[in-house]
Design a protein around this nucleic acid. Structure first.
Lengths: 150, 150
DNA sequence: TATGATAAGGTCAGATAAGGTCAAACTCGC
DNA sequence: GCGAGTTTGACCTTATCTGACCTTATCATA
């Protein structure tokens, strides 16, 4: 097992101990595993992506941190099923279908469903066109679905 | 939490206690938090800017002061005011300021504020970079603020 | 009524403390 | 030997903190 796997396991343990929310310091973690700090980013982007059921927030500067949240609750399977069914690009019609699906499954409230629809609408993504718009839409949709369930 | 955050919290409490108007002495506040006076200016410019919905007045010399006022006004106007102040491009820091402003103005709930922040975060807009990302962010932010207030 | 002492607040650049990005180099199983 | 996955490091961006120096206002008092 390589270093990346050990770091991933460590983070997973943190998440389990802290009810699905782990806050870490990149430099400290890197020091602990004797690797360069950017390897932490590598681990996060390859193993803690929305597709894996995680959302990540971070802050730079003094007092900075990286916070990793895991999708939780009894609906975990269903939300991951939906998120993984969303490809790398998606149009409004399909996005709408997924959001409706999530709403009908009780994963998100009516208001959140509407807000997410507003966020992934063509109008909201106006500056973009074609494939790029569908790509951002897919990313945004996954992100928001995981976010509201973590 | 760093010193700047504590100072900001302190000022916020002053504002709450005094109906949206806080008058303070820079040197006294700096002494209270054991920091240099210019840090007070730093806190004010990063957390009590017009974008955040505050107006700041001050006077030098003997009897000098710094007065911070929360902007008031009817909600309908507030939201349009905020939306109009958002340009064609916006970075995360400014976006965060505007969302905080909307929340403080009672225009959006805490949860909606968080969802909007998630939607306009760098991670959610990942496929995009640079100016394009800031452009989409601005558009998305305006869209969502208007949506949640219609 | 000038004038200098004193009492504020303002500005800005540099130091420090984080995290982010990207591409090159490396490894290891097939 | 090749390619996916991993490791590394140079360089970038953002946030915070600090101090030297500047500007403005008030007040005695000559």
């Amino acid at each position: 097992m390589g270093i990346s796997d050990m770091i991933a396991r460590f983070i997973t343990e943190m998440l389990e101990e802290a009810n699905g929310i782990a806050e870490l310091q990149r430099a400290e973690l890197a020091a602990r595993f004797n690797c360069v700090p950017s390897q932490i980013n590598y681990v996060i982007s390859t193993r803690f992506s929305p597709e894996h059921g995680y959302i990540v927030e971070s802050r730079r500067g003094g007092g900075g941190y990286i916070r990793i949240k895991r999708v939780k609750g009894p609906q975990k399977q269903r939300i991951m099923h939906i998120v993984n069914a969303i490809g790398n690009q998606i149009d409004t019609a399909s996005a709408s279908a997924f959001v409706t699906n999530a709403y009908n499954s009780g994963l998100i409230s009516r208001n959140v469903a509407k807000l997410i629809m507003a966020a992934v609408s063509d109008n909201a993504l106006r500056p973009l066109q074609g494939e790029q718009r569908d790509e951002v839409r897919a990313n945004l949709l996954k992100h928001l679905l995981i976010y509201t369930n973590s």
